[in-house]
Design a protein around this nucleic acid. Structure first.
Lengths: 243, 243
DNA sequence: CGCGGGTTTGAGCCTACTCAACAGATGTGG
DNA sequence: CCACATCTGTTGAGTAGGCTCAAACCCGCG
């Protein structure tokens, strides 16, 4: 039976070269994969098992939820993303991971990881390096959330999502998938769903975007990028120094 | 000449056991240290050298600065903290690091790191794991910044700083050092210096805190913790699984 | 003694929120 | 296959939390 292609492998090989051993190890990591459904919590804060995962298909988010039920979306994950490698130092999962769409993932815990650390330390470092990009993005978003107006914040976030989107093979380069509802966009920005709606409405009315659910199109991404000071951290990725 | 004690080594040894080789490697990493002055930018965004550092004494912050000059403080570093290990995947430093006080640090770049990766992969993983805690804290702060009221946000942040403070050997356990001005606290919270001032004033008037510059005291930290849902991520640290 | 950085206080305003209601989609069980 | 529930999007009206602008004070320091 043919091996399903791995979004993670594809991305890694664009950034560095793997030897046969490493490719094999990666393949074994992804051997078992579980299918997961929309809205399912694949990792729950406070639990100690399955702290690490490779998202093989579908979208997921990391959510921080408060006592009053309000919550914030700190990360958005797409196929090929690594989840939880940024929590190595915590004894249990610090925040929830929720599926945004149906999908599939390979799950691990510390014992798998510590095996990998012994047998393929370089590979682990590569994976960690890749996943750290997400936290660089979070810092940009922290700035946006605290220092930009609601509209600029929204623009910044849409650019973030656009830059995440894997090359979908579609010719319309400026059309991208938006896997979040308006309420969820609000949770990612610290705004109300209602206000997000007004902003999106205003943007479409001014012909800045067009919404073609579940897709979206930004009419003048370059202008937006300039305006809100957006950086595409994925394009700036470089892990080749790890020889 | 006697070796100056290393805040980093102390912290690592509380969390796991190092063998003689690793202790030696760590010692060599910290051999050269440079003294740095308040307000000095020790790493500047966009540059490719000295991307990594061990902060040996003093306090520093990571700042994200926008085109209009507004900025946000995403991280606060204290002695023994690792800086830049969370940016492994970026080709250049993504954000500025600024000294908040005079201090000293040991600086590295990717070549040092890739040597370390080859000779002491476990040690590098330990260091990375430790430094990732800071990003877990940032996610908590992201939630606070987007979903809590200004006063709760401020309480949350003060608890964060208090939990960072190294055991100062002082008996007053509830008194801690506050290395940020009100304007800087505002940058860490997404508030104006003026509003931070009003909040602090109100808290002291209600006898919730006392300000004894450069120290500060929270009168009822347990109540605050409950109220804003604060987690002490440093206490939850666990890197012992990396055998 | 003057200067700059940090703090304090007042007055007025605007951005983003709350509450409320409805329309459209989606899904689900009988 | 329809009836009902739930989630999502849309719009209006009124409000308030945190902002802006302005000015003064304190203090350490050159």
């Amino acid at each position: 039976m043919k091996v399903t292609s791995s979004a993670l492998l594809l991305r890694l090989e664009q950034l560095t070269t793997l030897d046969a051993d490493e490719r094999q190890a990666l393949h074994e990591l992804e051997r078992d994969s579980r299918s997961v459904k929309k809205r399912e919590a694949v990792m729950r804060r406070g639990t100690v098992h399955n702290n690490f995962a490779i998202l093989r298909s579908g979208w997921a988010t990391r959510r921080v939820t408060g006592a009053d039920g309000r919550s914030a979306i700190t990360h958005v994950f797409c196929p090929g993303d690594l989840i939880g490698l940024c929590d190595l130092g915590t004894q249990s999962t610090p925040h929830d991971i929720i599926m945004q769409t149906d999908g599939s993932m390979s799950l691990f815990d510390t014992s798998d990881l510590s095996r990998l650390a012994q047998k393929h330390p370089r590979l682990l470092l590569l994976l960690i390096s890749m996943s750290q990009i997400e936290d660089v993005v979070l810092r940009d978003r922290f700035y946006a959330a605290t220092r930009l107006s609601a509209e600029d914040r929204l623009m910044h976030f849409l650019l973030c999502i656009q830059s995440k989107v894997p090359n979908q093979g579609e010719k319309c380069a400026d059309r991208f998938q938006m896997p979040l509802s308006q309420k969820e966009i609000g949770d990612a920005l610290g705004l109300t769903d209602i206000y997000v709606n007004r902003l999106l409405r205003s943007l479409t009315d001014r012909d800045e975007i067009s919404v073609e659910r579940p897709y979206m199109r930004i009419k003048a991404p370059a202008r937006w990028t300039e305006r809100v000071g957006f950086h595409d951290r994925y394009q700036e990725t470089d892990i080749a120094w790890l020889t």
